[in-house]
Design a protein around this nucleic acid. Structure first.
Length: 493
RNA sequence: GCGCCUCUAGCUCAACGGUAGAGCAACGGACUCUUAAUCCGCAGGUUCGGGGUUCGAAUCCCCGGGGGCGCACCA
């Protein structure tokens, strides 16, 4: 027999069975209303009034208040919460309803009413258990705060606490808006290999894995860059990818070993175009996700309205430290400045690495922004094109927001000979002990020899942007399943 | 990798050298407008593991483990 109510077989007379044995769980349940939607629709319904709507809702019991021959329960679904109201003489199998546990999933049909005490409710006619919560979890008032439980068992965190739901929802909205923003500007989304033979395009230690059939060691990508530029060589003038990259590094409030990056490349554009694009995209996302281009973060305000300040790295270092710095000072001159500022340096570093280190240690953390930090030393930027007027520098910028690097972009280097020389320089750095020097990608050089037009490229840390727009202090808040040490299971589990 | 802090009931936390407790959850009962419902009752523990000091250890010390924070690493 098929139940007309929920469409599943056998789910009709289960009510009477509950007291004796386990209730049968239907295979499907035809809910027709969301809690949030009902709350919005009947916001103005006065206490004690009937909405004259019969609604079928489903969700999880967050609270339950049996009271004699009535039962009040708070049912939560993904959109919000609504009260279930069980009444003797109206509700089928009221007694069993009152014996449900917190965390149980329930579907219910009944009249939408507002109780005399003002709570919008579904006055239940019939209901069905959709899943039993066999484990019971956090304190119903305080939720779950144990960090281990929250992130290892996100399924507990998501129902026991309010923030994770809204944070993950807002991240989803942000990524979706990002896609739409780029698509509306003619960008094409692609997917490029994660398993790579040469993990190049960034400075980081890769994860290694092995392909059995090919009997080859492969690396998980540390950047998307080189493949996207191959596609520009192939004629895709505007491409982007939003994807996971992997870096074999430590964990911190701002670092997860796998994280999401947006990278995009635009033919015929330079880094100033990338600045404008970054600004307008981030401002757009803030407006849509936060309702304002001025957002709060860590107790301060961040005004994302374009245009953002543009300043060179050397200007900013001088501003922060009072020290004049320039590559023209040479290694010795910069080493003296580093000494005065208490920045420790490696003997193998050239002037570019020295300047970069001085900037990173003394200046970047103090920038609130938003600011585009422009013109990086060539030595630390092997994929960026020489600056059109400043020798030794490249046309590269990083956008700093709330003291953090959010975007990294450049006018892309498109001269294959120069690119080969840069890779060779990286190889020298590696030989000198720089583990993270960028490895040579021969096929990428070959691609460049077919011609890469002038191109602007941009990378944005999606997790960090999500942190910013959700006010999260820790990257794991914006990742559904952040990296954790492997769990040690005891026998009981 | 280094330093500091932390681990007690399912959850959130007390007890800080002298009989391991509370609130919530669970379990049994009462209650026809509740809102963290209320009330009555009943249970619940290798105090992370191991070793040591002590008449006596959740408490102090050592070793190990989990977790947190900071540093380092990290474009």
């Amino acid at each position: 027999m098929v139940c007309a109510w929920c469409g599943s077989a056998t789910a009709v007379e289960e009510g009477a069975q509950v007291a004796e044995g386990p209730m049968e769980i239907p295979y499907r349940f035809a809910k027709d209303s969301d809690a949030g939607e009902l709350q919005a629709r009947w916001r103005d319904l006065p206490p004690g009034e009937e909405a004259h709507q019969v609604a079928t809702v489903a969700g999880r019991l967050m609270l339950i208040r049996p009271q004699g021959r009535m039962v009040f329960a708070t049912l939560r679904d993904w959109t919000g919460a609504i009260q279930l109201w069980g009444v003797a003489g109206v509700t089928e199998d009221l007694e069993s309803l009152g014996r449900l546990s917190l965390g149980d999933w329930v579907g219910a049909t009944g009249d939408v009413v507002r109780t005399r005490r003002g709570e919008l409710s579904v006055r239940v006619r019939r209901w069905v258990l959709l899943a039993r919560a066999r484990r019971h979890f956090g304190d119903k008032w305080r939720g779950v705060s144990d960090v281990e439980t929250r992130f290892r068992q996100r399924y507990v965190d998501l129902w026991a606490n309010d923030d994770p739901r809204s944070i993950l929802l807002r991240r989803s909205m942000m990524v979706s808006l990002m896609r739409r923003f780029l698509e509306e500007r003619g960008f094409v989304e692609v997917e490029t290999p994660i398993l790579q033979v040469v993990p190049s395009g960034g400075h980081a230690l890769p994860f290694v894995t092995h392909h059995n059939a090919l009997d080859a060691d492969l690396y998980l990508r540390i950047a998307i860059e080189l493949h996207l530029k191959r596609l520009v060589v192939g004629g895709m003038e505007k491409v982007f990818e939003i994807g996971r990259i992997f870096r074999n590094e430590g964990l911190s409030p701002r670092h997860n070993p796998e994280f999401t990056m947006l990278e995009l490349y635009q033919a015929y554009a330079d880094y100033t175009d990338m600045m404008a694009l970054t600004e307008s995209m981030v401002a757009h996302l803030a407006r849509e996700c936060c309702g304002s281009v001025v957002i709060p973060y860590e107790g301060r305000e961040l005004d994302l309205s374009p245009p953002w300040r543009r300043a060179t790295m050397t200007e900013l270092v001088e501003e922060q430290t009072g020290e004049v710095v320039d590559l023209a000072m040479g290694r010795d001159g910069l080493a003296k400045v580093a000494g005065r500022l208490g920045v420790t340096v490696e003997p193998r570093w050239g002037p570019g690495a020295l300047l970069f280190e001085i900037y990173e240690k003394t200046t970047e953390p103090n920038l609130w922004g938003p600011v585009h930090v422009c013109d990086y030393p060539k030595e630390v930027s092997p994929l960026a094109r020489d600056h059109r007027s400043r020798p030794g520098y490249v046309e590269r910028f990083e956008s700093i927001l709330a003291g953090r690097e959010l975007a990294n972009a450049f006018s892309e280097l498109n001269d294959p000979d120069e690119q080969r020389a840069r890779f060779e320089d990286q190889a020298r750095q590696r030989a000198a002990g720089e583990e993270e020097a960028m490895p040579l990608d021969r096929d990428y050089l070959r691609a460049m020899e077919y011609g890469l037009p002038p191109t602007g490229g941009l990378g944005v840390g999606v997790d960090r942007l999500a942190m910013l727009l959700t006010g999260s202090r820790h990257i794991r808040e914006v990742i559904a399943f952040p990296a954790m040490r492997p769990e040690v299971w005891d026998e009981a589990e």
